[in-house]
Design a protein around this nucleic acid. Structure first.
Lengths: 149, 149
DNA sequence: GATAATAGTTAGTTTGGCTAACGAAATGAT
DNA sequence: ATCATTTCGTTAGCCAAACTAACTATTATC
C-alpha cells in the first residue's frame, strides 16, 4: 500500500522542520547569554549540573559530549567561581559529586528566564490558534526530544 | 481580569518546554556529526553558506554570531577543503561572495540527512495522534523560531 | 595479592573564539 | 576634485576550550 510510504515521507518532513526550528530557536535566544557573564561552555556545563545534578565528572562529560579532561577543567573553573561545589563519594574514593551552589542555580535560572522571556514574547505575537497548537505540542516535543517513551 | 494573566503564564510555560525541547533535540542529533569529518564550527558555517548563500563574509559572521575575522578564517579553511568558493562582487570591490561547491552541498546534505533520520526515527515511534500534532505544529514552530511574521 | 578496569587529573597540542590594527574600496562633505 | 569617514575583509597576536596521551589513586576481578 501507499499509506506506509506516505507516512515515512511525512515523518521525515516533520523532522526536517523541527530540526530547523530547533537550530533557529536556540540561535535567537542565545543572544541573551552574554548578560550572564559566563562563557557558553561554562554556562552549558552549569546547566547540566543544575538540572541533572548532583552528577559525576564522567557523567557530565557524557551529557555534554566532551572528554573527561575538559569536564574536569570546567568543573574546576565553575568551582573557582563559587557556582558549584564538589563532594567526594562516600563509598568510592575515586568519584567526585558535582552540585550547583545557590549562586550557581540563581545565575543559571536568571539566564534561562531571559531566554524563555525572549521566546515567550515571540509566542505572544502569534494568532491564538497557533499559540494553542504550540501549547499542545510543546509537551510531546519535549518528551520526544529527550528520548523518553 | 484573570484571563490576561493566565495567558501570560501559559506562554511562558510553553516557551520553557520548547526551549528545553530544542536543547535536547539538538544535543541528540549532534552525535551524528562526527561522521561528517568536519569540526562543529566549520559544519555550522557551511550550513549557513549552503542555506543562506551566496553570502558575504560579514553576513556570515552576523548569521553565526561570530566576529568578521573568525568568519574570514572559517571561510578560508572551508575554501581550502574545497567546500566553498569565493567570487568578488561585480560592483563593490571590497565584498567577497561565498557559495558552497557541489562537494560542500553534498557533505552538508548527507550530514543533515543523518540528523533528520535520527529524529524521524524517534517520531516514528510516537502514537499516531501525537505524530499528527507535531506535524501540524512543526511549520508554525519553524516560522516563529526564525522570527518571521 | 597480582592484574585489570575505572575516575579523575595533569601535560601538551590544536582549534576556534576575540580585539586591535591595517589596506583597499566606497561614500560624503566641502 | 580632494580629503575625511565609513565599510569590508584580512592579518597578527592573544586567550579560552577542545582534544589525546599519560599518569595517580582507587576499586574490582581472578
Amino acid at each position: 500500500m501507499g499509506s506506509k510510504r506516505r507516512q515515512v515521507i511525512d515523518v521525515t518532513a516533520v523532522a526536517e522542520r523541527l530540526h530547523s526550528a530547533a537550530i533557529h530557536l536556540l540561535r535567537r535566544v542565545r543572544t541573551e547569554d552574554v548578560a550572564s557573564g559566563l562563557s557558553p561552555a561554562r554556562l552549558s556545563a552549569l546547566s547540566v549540573i543544575v538540572f541533572a545534578g548532583p552528577i559525576t565528572v564522567s557523567d557530565l562529560a557524557q551529557a555534554e559530549q566532551i572528554r573527561p579532561p575538559t569536564a574536569s577543567r570546567l568543573a574546576k573553573e565553575l568551582e573557582g567561581q563559587g557556582l558549584l561545589r564538589r563532594t567526594p563519594d562516600a563509598n568510592d574514593g575515586r568519584v567526585q559529586w558535582l552540585r550547583a551552589t545557590k549562586a550557581g542555580r540563581r545565575l543559571l535560572e536568571s539566564g534561562r528566564a531571559r531566554r524563555v522571556a525572549k521566546l515567550a514574547e515571540a509566542l505572544g505575537q502569534l494568532p491564538a490558534a497557533e499559540r494553542r497548537l504550540l501549547a499542545q505540542a510543546a509537551g510531546v516535543l519535549d518528551r520526544v526530544s529527550r528520548g523518553e517513551p
